[in-house]
Structures are given as C-alpha cells and as structure tokens.
Write a protein that binds this DNA or RNA. Structure first.
Lengths: 260, 260
DNA sequence: GGCCGTAAATGGTCATACCTTGCTTCGTGT
DNA sequence: ACACGAAGCAAGGTATGACCATTTACGGCC
C-alpha cells in the first residue's frame, strides 16, 4: 500500500465540483470505461482504495454503494468488491423500474404491453439475423416444451430459454436487456402461479409458429406470431386471481427471466 | 422524535435476512409503494429516521444512497432528503445503461437501433390512441420546425418535443421511459454537433409524414414513417466525425431527451 | 495427499465528532 | 412599517476509529 503497484488510481482532483462521493463515483466510472477495471476484476480493499483516492472510507463506501445500486459493482463480505461479471447477455437491474411502477401505479396491463412491444421488436430482428446455431437452439427448446407438457415447471424453463434465445439472435443487446428488465418483473409475480398449467399444448404450438417464422426469415410473420402468442398468454394470465405488481420481493433481485 | 407523530416507521424486523442496509432499502421501498411516502415528500432527518428504524446513521445513509442512485430519492445538503417528484412522465436514470454500454463496448449503431425499435413501437401505439390534444401539439411542433429551419438549436427543441408528444400519446409510460433512457444517451453526444445543420427541411418533412400517419390512425404507416425518419437521421449522423459513447458527462444526468 | 481448523483479509456496522450548506428568524436600519 | 442583512439552527456530507461477520487461504494433522 505504501508505494509500488499501480498508480492508476490517481487521487481525485477537487476541482470537479459536487460532493466528494460523487467524485468517487466519477473516478470509478471512468476507470471502468477506460478499461482499467474490467468485468470480473476485483477492486482493491476499501481501506487501501480510500487512501489511494484520497478520501475516507465512508465516502468511498458511499460511492461504491451508488455503483452497486445500479448493478455495476458487487460487494461480498469477506471476499471483496468486484466489477459485475456478466457471463451471459448484459442485464440491467429491474428494481428501478419496479420502484417506478409502484411510485406511479403502473398496471400490469401496461407492463405487459411494454413487454409485448419489446418482444415483437426483438422477434422481428431475430427473423432477419438468427444464425443456424440460434435456430437449432430454438428448435430444441420447442421440442423440450412438447416433451414437458405434463411438467409445467420444466415447460417454463424451456419457455424462458426459447425467448432468451430469440433475444440473443436479435443481435441487439440493449433491446435484450430492456426486454429482460420488463420480463423479469412480470416473471417474478408469475412463477408462483405456474403450477396450474393452462393449455401448455397451445402454448407450445404458438412457440413453434414463432420459430418457423424466424426460420423462414420473415420478420412480419415473426412479429405477428409473437403478438398472438403474448395476447393469448395475457388472456390466460388475466383469468388468474388479481396479480399485484405491488408485492415485489424484498430484495431487488437482478435475475433475468422471461416467461411465455 | 420521542413519541407522537407517526409510527409508520416501524423498526425493521431482523428476520428479513440479508444485510442491515438492505433491510433499510426494503423498508423505504415498501413505505413508498404503500403510499406512506409519496413523490415530493420529505423524509425525516437522517438522525431521527435512523433511530426510528433502529439502525445507525451510516447504515441508514447507505440505504438512502442506494435508492438515490436509482433515482428514487434525492438528498440536498442543508435541506433534507426527498422522494423524487416527477412532474412530467416518469423517467428512468440512464446512467446504468451508459455504464453497461462502456462495460460491454456497445456501438452507437446498436444503441441507435434500439432507439429505432422503441420509437417505432411507440409510434405504432400512438397511431392507435393519440387524442385530439396530442395531435394538436404534434402539429404545432411540426409547424415550429418549419419555422426554425434557420435556427438548428430551436429546431432541435421542437424535434425533441415532437417525439415526446408521440411517446405521451402512446399511453404506455414504461415504453416511454425506456425510450427516453436510450434517447438521452444518444442525445447527450449529439447536442454538441447540432450546430452544423443537416438538411433540416427534409427532417421537417419526415416529421410531418409521421404526424399524418398518426393523424390517420394508421399504425403501420406511422411505424414506417418513423423508421424512414430515423434511418435518414442515422445516415446524416454517421457522416459526422466518430462519436464516442465513451465520453459520457461526468455526472449521471437523468434528463430526458429525444433527438431527431 | 487430502481434509479440517485456525488465522488473516475484507466488507458491514456502529458511535462520534465536526464541517458545509440551506433555511429561518430576528434584529436593525431606512 | 417594511426591507434587507446577519446570525443561529437544522440537516446532510465527511472523517476517524473501533469492532463484528464472513470468506478465503494457509498450514498442520490424519
């Protein structure tokens, strides 16, 4: 800590007005997108890093906390603080959206419509760009659905993977992230009601339609098939007891999820 | 603090596992979406609130910081901490997306495509639902563009307002928020290059096409007009010098912005 | 050589003090 | 009586230091 290693952590210039902890956030952000800190990297211990940046530990912690809240950093007690390693597709934390939903009283219908628009857009792009590998995976998942008609939970797994494969083959990670953000919120309230299977066969059929449209590189058909699929899913959904977007799980889980 | 006022701040149950500060976040979130704290409200002073929740001030501050980072709370030194008052449409902070962009090296083309998909979806919905008021506003903004052909900055103002009016008339605040999130990032790098006007007349024409499609309640035409518009905007955009998504402004500004 | 325990490393929490900034109120001057 | 300004108070921001909880890693023991 005394001398050597890296001096890439320059003590922050007080000129950058604003509060000190904001300065820390700025410093860390710049280090990240300058490539000095890359996904998966571990930050120096808080005590050291605080000295290196010339701030106190609480102030540094405040900055880290801010970045952790938006999903860029992750701290594990006893282990260290890490730049989030997104192994799969990049993902955005859905808790801000969830908060906004409760703050403004969004209906689940509105949320569902947003998801539908995003899924349709993604399906359209996927129809233009899906590679052979992607389509093979989709076909497998569809087959998996047919094979799981008696096991709703297993069916749901294939369902989610199918939608994520579509997102992946859209080639647009931003849309994918946004779609997952919305889908996650819907998913969290849905997973509890999955037990009561609702016409899994029809659902599998519709997924197959989507797959075939993508397979034929027909964006319009893909969009339409996705539209039909989600419309029916919503209708089945609406038959269940009232779903509140209100009771979000306590912790702002960041997981991805897409449902039928 | 001793007795009376409100005891809606119940000391948090330690049962909810996780770290203490996460518990604080949970408490505050639930208070918000239970309606005990509403937009614009001011939280009790940190020292009091810490006692009420049964945690120390640093821990409480950590929780507040997390919520502030995602744009739900805002603290002003000397004044207090407030639940963010969103006067206009709800908006999501774009800094997480910006961070994700630098983390994964998103190209501006990808960002642009995401925006196009969102704008097309929104335009389609707007064509189905826009009210007379909305359309009147759109018409005014289009007129404003024609009137500002010699003043790029003024033109841009009308441009932004036009797109936001479309978003508003889509009736889906979630898609609107997501669209603004993406548009903001593009906008921030664009506002610097606005000075060099590029075919404002053509741009105004295309906006008029969009308007007319919406006016005629023709979703497909609206989507297509928006598509053409953004394709051309992107082409003009690509002619400029290399735009880096990298140099985001130091502070994670939360403003809304949509450009042509 | 593999397994388990202990110790060091590291983030999480707490208590306290002091500084900086807004806001408010009281006093003075016009 | 009104207006302006200065002082005091309130509230968030930062710093210091200590201790707790957990994870990791090293080393001894079987």
């Amino acid at each position: 800590m005394t001398s050597a290693n890296v001096d890439m952590f320059k003590t922050l210039d007080p000129e950058h007005a604003g509060t000190t902890s904001e300065g820390v956030v700025t410093q860390l952000r710049e280090m990240i997108h300058r490539g000095e800190l890359r996904p998966g990297d571990r930050l120096p211990p808080e005590r050291d890093l605080a000295k290196l940046l010339g701030v106190s530990r609480p102030t540094l912690r405040a900055g880290i906390r801010s970045l952790a809240a938006v999903g860029v950093l992750q701290s594990r007690q006893g282990a260290g603080t890490f730049v989030v390693k997104s192994d799969g597709p990049p993902s955005l934390d859905s808790s801000p959206l969830r908060l906004m939903a409760s703050l403004h009283g969004f209906t689940s219908a509105e949320m569902f419509e947003a998801r539908m628009s995003l899924e349709m857009a993604v399906a359209g792009l996927a129809a233009e760009r899906a590679t052979g590998d992607h389509m093979a995976t989709m076909a497998e998942e569809v087959a998996g659905m047919y094979a799981s008609l008696g096991d709703p939970e297993q069916f749901l797994v294939h369902d989610v993977r199918f939608h994520q494969t579509i997102a992946a083959s859209s080639g647009n990670r931003i849309l994918t992230a946004l779609m997952n953000m919305v889908a996650t919120i819907l998913f969290e309230t849905r997973i509890k009601t999955v037990k009561r299977a609702t016409d899994l066969k029809e659902s599998a059929e519709m997924h197959r339609h989507i797959y075939r449209a993508i397979r034929e590189h027909n964006p319009e058909a893909a969009r339409e098939a996705m539209h039909d699929h989600l419309i029916r899913a919503k209708m089945a959904w609406d038959l269940e007891e009232p779903h509140d977007l209100e009771h979000a799980p306590p912790n702002g889980s960041n997981g991805n999820g897409a449902s039928s």
